[in-house]
Design a protein around this nucleic acid. Structure first.
Lengths: 253, 253
DNA sequence: ACTATGATATTGTCCGACAATCCGACAGGC
DNA sequence: GCCTGTCGGATTGTCGGACAATATCATAGT
């Protein structure tokens, strides 16, 4: 029989408390940087026990809506940082068994748009940040880990330059998942560094010239090149991100 | 002065407990659907109090790594659902003051790629789901809310058809933010429904024919059309998503 | 095979307690 | 004036125990 009634929604107190606070934050009644009342005070106001309040706070804390100053004790209203968002999202990708080819495909879709937007709207400062990242990468000798960080910083700087917070937040988790495989590519493909360097150079030039089409086009080529990198490095495209690449690569080396 | 020492990292017990469980889940030692031990048992194993365990569980719960069956009591290992991921992400976009133009730009970047991938890899079932969504939308008379749901379902079905979990997860938050402004467009732009309908038709045809370029191209046009919709409907592109559109639109009507 | 029943286990919530430590004020020495 | 040491109060992190509500599961009944 078709159900006649919805089940009575029962919401535990800790859930309702966390929703109440969340709603106030989203409605901007609690603004970033503002300290939250103490746990005891919240318990008094909501008329629940402090333990219940604490459970609610933990939920908001892990969503990145609440945070604390370094070494601090009290909680402050914050907005989810790139890192918090990126962490959660890349975790989700892993659990959904995304493969490197899936991440690559998403990058191929997103990055040209970011580069194009960056070319359109870059400021002198944001351009300088992009150039700095490219220069740092070009200057590296060895230092695999740092070189990878530079590549990520390059993409990040482009995201910032796009002036689009959506791009900034989407960028982070994709880059995070790219990182491990990038390490393998740099180790195993001798010409990888040179190719990345020249691609970055072309993109930087296009962004500097505010040439949207060129920036977008070069970025598309750059990302396509990554795929070749996977193939040359012997990373199966169907490898799941989050799987340790050591294993799959060990078999090839 | 340049700091000489790293701050001593102190991690509260509830944090370490939640990280321990999270790590086991990511390492797939705890697999989806598996029930978690009871709180008392976890407290015994970690040698902490049950309250501490509960705080840790709330964190994982809000990350979507743990969930419970409808009306159930025990917690099960789950993977973050589209809704959970999308909710958190769109929340983050709002708090970062993303504007409709930002979301639109991201859609313009992502959706053609999704449509292209869907054309390449669609199965008969996933094609059927896309067609069904398009058909439902075309059949609507009035019923604004449901029509909007159909539009979202259309995009969602394309994401599924792409077979790329990254696309699926990225799609959700963008659509969620699109929804309110779409409602305004449908209300205020008479020809909107017809335009959407014909765009969907073209995309469906391209996906059915497995024509990647056509699917991608029509989708690009479709998304570009949304921007025109904003302008005709009198929605300022700089409106922040999450702001109630009633206010901004009221001033225009 | 399905349903009703009841014992048991588990969660949600509360209370009270205490140690650690962060915070701000305040005093003293260079 | 600025840095350092001290101190009391406020706040968090953690603990133990308690109890009602109810989900779960095995059992008995039809």
């Amino acid at each position: 029989m078709r159900p006649m009634f919805e089940p009575l929604g029962y919401a535990p107190a800790y859930w309702r408390v966390s929703e109440a606070i969340r709603a106030r934050i989203l409605r901007r009644e609690l603004v970033e940087g503002q300290p939250l009342p103490t746990e005891t005070e919240l318990a008094r106001q909501f008329e629940v026990n402090r333990s219940t309040v604490r459970e609610a706070l933990r939920k908001l804390e892990s969503n990145g809506l609440l945070g604390r100053r370094r070494g601090g004790k009290r909680l402050y209203v914050t907005r989810p940082t790139r890192e918090a968002v990126g962490g959660g999202l890349s975790e989700a990708f892993e659990l959904h068994r995304a493969r490197v080819v899936d991440v690559w495909e998403a990058l191929q879709s997103v990055q040209p748009g970011i580069a194009g937007a960056a070319a359109l709207r870059r400021t002198d400062e944001s351009l300088a940040a992009i150039e700095a990242a490219a220069r740092r990468f070009a200057g590296r000798q060895g230092e695999r880990e740092k070189a990878i960080g530079d590549v990520a910083a390059f993409f990040d700087a482009l995201g910032e330059a796009s002036g689009n917070p959506v791009f900034v937040l989407l960028n982070e988790p994709l880059l995070r998942l790219l990182t491990p495989s990038l390490a393998v590519i740099i180790d195993r493909v001798p010409q990888a560094r040179a190719r990345i360097e020249s691609a970055q150079k072309a993109i930087v030039d296009a962004v500097r010239a505010r040439d949207e089409a060129a920036a977008s086009g070069w970025m598309a080529r750059h990302v396509r090149d990554f795929r070749r990198g996977y193939e040359v490095a012997g990373i199966p495209l169907s490898t799941e991100v989050g799987d340790s690449l050591d294993a799959t690569v060990a078999g090839v080396s």
